[in-house]
Simulated scan of single mutants.
Amino acid sequence: MAKLFAVYRQPKDPAAFDAYYFGKHVPLAKTIPGLRSDEVTRGDVMGMEGKHPVYLVAILEFDSMESMGAAMASPQGQATAADLANFASAGVDVMMGNTMMV
């Protein structure tokens, strides 16, 4: 398996972020071909010292890094990536990698 992690920084207007993210971005992301599962954090993201400045973490799962690459290169993947500019003005870090059970 391979996962994509989208780590969103704290928005200036959390209500507007949530409305766009859950109303438009999530439905768009769900059209990405090969997407096996998706999940997001709920409530505060916590660090070792307490509340973390990260607002939300989304995790998208694919069969492999190769299938993720193809999915993100698809028109749906490109549209989803381009959509970040419409609501993630505080910033988002996108990371991906192979995963395994330990």
Rank of each mutant, 00 (worst) to 15 (best):
A2G: 15
A2P: 14
K3W: 01
L4Q: 04
L4T: 05
L4H: 04
L4N: 03
L4R: 08
F5E: 00
F5Y: 15
A6Y: 01
V7R: 06
Y8M: 14
Y8R: 15
Q10I: 04
Q10L: 05
D13C: 15
D13N: 15
F17P: 04
D18S: 15
D18H: 15
Y20Q: 12
Y21A: 00
F22N: 15
F22V: 14
K24R: 15
H25K: 12
H25Y: 07
H25E: 03
P27M: 02
L28D: 02
A29N: 02
A29M: 08
K30I: 04
K30F: 03
T31A: 09
T31R: 13
I32K: 01
I32V: 12
P33I: 09
G34H: 03
R36S: 02
E39S: 14
V40A: 09
T41F: 07
R42K: 10
R42Y: 08
D44I: 12
V45W: 05
V45F: 05
M46F: 09
M46V: 13
E49M: 10
E49I: 06
G50S: 11
H52W: 07
P53Q: 05
P53S: 10
P53H: 07
P53G: 07
P53N: 06
P53F: 05
P53D: 07
V54L: 11
V57P: 06
A58P: 09
I59H: 04
I59K: 07
L60H: 01
L60E: 00
E61W: 00
F62C: 01
F62L: 01
F62G: 02
F62A: 00
D63T: 09
M65E: 05
M65K: 11
E66H: 13
M68I: 04
G69K: 13
A70E: 04
A71N: 03
A71F: 02
M72G: 04
A73R: 11
A73N: 11
S74T: 03
S74V: 01
P75S: 10
P75D: 10
Q78I: 04
A79C: 08
A79L: 04
A79V: 08
T80A: 12
A81V: 07
A81W: 02
D83C: 00
L84H: 08
F87S: 04
F87C: 02
F87Q: 02
A88P: 01
A88Q: 03
S89K: 14
V92N: 06
M96I: 10
G97D: 13
N98K: 13
T99L: 02
M100R: 11
M100W: 07
M101S: 11
